[in-house]
């Protein structure tokens, strides 16, 4: 009895420690970054694209736009691919094939992002440079690599959402003389909608937060891109690239960039949770 209570306490403490470290990280980046946002002003921080931290200019607009565009590009590539893959695996494949392929696809998530970046640099970037022009290191390259990297997230959660649709819906539709595709497109997909939206949002969170692969293939030029072949620097790339030598206000500005990312990802995750719960 006594011992039981003790073990319970220890487990509770361990469980709380993970929440606690999240809280500490949050407090830390806010303490480090918030003063700069206050002194520069929120408007000049996120609505100016003049980033010259050693000269006192801290506008991150170009990087926000780049992050958003790279993420958008990744969604345009990754969502149709991932969703169709999930539909094939969940609705049109024999069980055994699904049992082999789903874990394989999830393995994609375990490949270190530097490997994706490496493949991008030696294979994708020259391809873009030779066939489409520009430096190759570009918004397009970043989007393609990220589009592939979010596949496991999108596929895996979409498959779960499709599998969760009760079979009686499918039977009802087929028994009315629907084909399998009609059944999927008219009943199963609408029924799985909230789960699929969650999959897309979580994929988005992963894309916007990815750093290493993007640094390697996106070119990292500080500018608002005017073409998909322009090199871009995302919020995450900027932090990773500059933190090594940043000091003082420059360092604070990078933490402030972290706050912006933190808030974006929190909003994405929160909306995913809310959508899932509403089901």
């Amino acid at each position: 009895m006594h011992r039981e209570k003790f073990i319970e306490r220890v487990l509770l403490l361990l469980a709380l420690s993970s929440v606690g470290s999240l809280a500490l990280i949050t407090i830390f980046i806010f303490l480090e970054g918030f003063p700069l946002i206050l002194s520069v002003g929120l408007k000049d921080f996120i609505l100016s694209s003049h980033w010259a931290p050693t000269k006192g200019h801290f506008g991150i607009l170009a990087m926000i736009i780049s992050s958003v565009l790279v993420t958008l590009g990744a969604m345009i590539i990754g969502v149709p691919l991932g969703l169709s893959c999930a539909i094939v695996l969940a609705e049109f494949s024999p069980k055994r094939l699904k049992m082999v392929l789903k874990p394989t696809l999830e393995l994609l998530a375990g490949i270190p992002s530097v490997v994706y970046g490496f493949l991008g640099v030696i294979w994708l970037v020259p391809l873009i440079r030779n066939y489409l022009g520009g430096p190759g290191l570009s918004l397009l390259a970043g989007s393609i690599i990220l589009g592939i990297m979010i596949l496991p997230t999108v596929i895996s959660i979409s498959i779960d959402a499709l599998t969760a649709v009760p079979d009686p819906y499918r039977d009802g539709s087929l028994a009315l003389g629907a084909t399998r595709w009609q059944t999927v497109s008219r009943v199963v997909l609408p029924a799985a909608r909230s789960g699929i939206i969650t999959a897309i949002i979580l994929g988005m969170g992963r894309a916007i937060g990815e750093t290493m692969a993007v640094i390697m293939v996106a070119g990292n030029a500080l500018q608002i891109p005017t073409s998909i072949l322009d090199p871009v620097r995302t919020l995450t790339s900027n932090i990773a690239l500059e933190l090594g030598y940043a000091a003082g206000r420059h360092r604070e500005a990078l933490f402030a960039t972290g706050i912006v990312l933190f808030i974006i990802i929190m909003i994405l995750n929160l909306s995913a949770t809310l959508i899932t719960r509403r089901r």
């Binding site: 009760p166 009686p168 009802g172 539709s173 028994a175 009315l176 003389g177």
Partner: peptide
């Protein structure tokens, strides 16, 4: 299946 309709054990409206 259009000609031979089916009603199931548990109501299964979409």
């Amino acid at each position: 299946r259009k000609k031979v309709g089916m009603v199931f054990q548990r109501p299964n409206p979409f």
